[in-house]
Design a protein around this nucleic acid. Sequence first.
DNA 1: CAGTTTTTCCCATGATATCCCATAAGAACC
DNA 2: GGTTCTTATGGGATATCATGGGAAAAACTG
Lengths: 164, 164
Amino acid sequence: MRFIANYTNKVDRKGRVSVPARFRTALAESAWPGIVVYESFKLPCLEASAREYIDALSDRLTSDFGAFDDEKEALAAAILGAAFDLPFDSEGRILLPQSLLEFAGIDDAAVFVGVGEKFLIWSPEAWERYRDEQRARARSAAARLGALGRQAPRHPEAAAGDGA
Amino acid sequence: MRFIANYTNKVDRKGRVSVPARFRTALAESAWPGIVVYESFKLPCLEASAREYIDALSDRLTSDFGAFDDEKEALAAAILGAAFDLPFDSEGRILLPQSLLEFAGIDDAAVFVGVGEKFLIWSPEAWERYRDEQRARARSAAARLGALGRQAPRHPEAAAGDGA
DNA sequence: CAGTTTTTCCCATGATATCCCATAAGAACC
DNA sequence: GGTTCTTATGGGATATCATGGGAAAAACTG
């Protein structure tokens, strides 16, 4: 159950989108034919994962009847209450609720981005914007680190016997 | 028996509301065709669950804490005594008593919010307000509680800055 | 006990989701 | 390079769901 790479699929007039076949294959281990989708806390996109993933989270939050913990309960409501359990249709598509489409700014296409145990669903524009930002960030970070990183390993003698 | 997602349904002039079909399906395991509804202690909303859940809660409160703990006993009495056992009509609706409608400030629409083993019933306005508040809190709470800790390190966005 | 109100059941309807099939586009395979 | 299989996408038919209204049944009241 591991998602990688990204795929762009169309959202049809009825709000249906095909979940990439690769992802569906990964999802096949799951007992439930569908995914759970919810709004990301940090990014303007949706997050999706196997039902089991959320169930485990739910268990941790409400397991013991110690459901009498304000903070846990609030968190459970915020996460679980905003998550949708979306079954696949016979073609492997899901029907995204209006509220989720709006949240992510998804109109007629969606980008599925695998990030390990779950995947993100973006509007193409937002995804591109985010990706570019991250690249720029990575570039400058690399440049900064690279200046140091390149010298040290190449001139072991200059660093005088640190090495392995 | 697991509730997630949220659905908004209308309350008609007679005080009837459809329980979301998804919830009814989850409830189908229950022997009793209806739900138990009571006022939440901490939130301005109603809580609902399968009959069995309340029974278990009842057992737990009385056995674990015995007759010693006045506070728990009071809690049990408050919950069990004020709970309504609401049957479905043939269309899968329930008839919410006036007192509950008033408590939750529900007028002509109700939001059903699944949170694991039970679900909440809110007035649309109150739910939206609460949800927005919690979303903000959830971010930090998630990190602190470690509820999402398992995923956090794996999230690119968790490490990178905010993309929004 | 009759009049009156409330509750329960049943049916009608529009909206929505689900299923099923058809086609196209692409990838994998010979 | 051509063929075959998988995947994505679209549309139409069908079933399900939410919702409203009305009639029958029960409860309540004077």
